[in-house]
Amino acid sequence: MTRRPGKGRRQIALKDRLLPVLISLASVILVFGVVGYFVTSAPQWPRIQLQFFSLEAIIESFPAVAKGFLVSMQIWVISLVCIGIWALVLAIFRAMGGPWFAPLRVFAILYVDLFRGLPALLLVLLFGFGIPALNLPGLPTSGMFWGGVALILSYSAYATEVYRSGIEAVHEGQNMAAKALGLSQWQTLRYAILPQALRNVVPAMLNLVVALQKDVALLSVIGVRDAVREAQIYTARTFNYSSLVAAAILFLLATIPLARLTDHLQRRDRERRLQGVL
């Protein structure tokens, strides 16, 4: 039986809902106001402001930093595409059963163990400095290229695991139904399992997407002129760190919406799964 909500009940409900919002709003304003007041009234604040938050320096460094940020974004997007494909290939290697595919399976397992176990920075240094130094004919020598390769190799290991968890989350009955219809192992993956797995992994994959966006900055250590590198160059010239803050702002502008989207998708996913249980 559903109870008809009386007028009194609804009023209480409204008050119940409004009060917590008001309290949190007030406390947020209070806490941040107090902290802000103490920070800006500290005797060191003018120096801090000049060093880190100088509007002049931010504006002056902005064109170069923004240009670097565009480079970061390019590397980010191209790497994403390569990681998405390469990791999917590795995940498929891993998912293929039967003795014939054992070498591929072993290769994928070793690959993931290896590249997940190594710091991305180490790979960037190794590839970005090491391979161009070999001067091998026919191979590109740009640090940007090899740094990107290092990122792709490293992130593909994580992305493979994400794909794999998505594949394993598909119910075993789907496999059986596909096999019973006569689909080959590859057809089963291609038509029955992967479409469901890919949908499952979107939120987890977006986490990697955000992480990679930041880790592109690793390429600055091998001299790629990304946002961080450009900001450093400005800092080295003027001894003012506001250019790094400019870069930080750009990164936040890009990552925060993505992080929100990830949260949203994850929540929706959870709700959908809960509904499935009920």
Partner: peptide, 16 residues
């Protein structure tokens, strides 16, 4: 598989 079909308790239709 063409000559023998099977149906399961949980239907196992492809949801997508």
């Amino acid at each position: 598989y063409k000559r023998v079909g099977i149906v399961f308790q949980a239907y196992n239709l492809f949801p997508h």
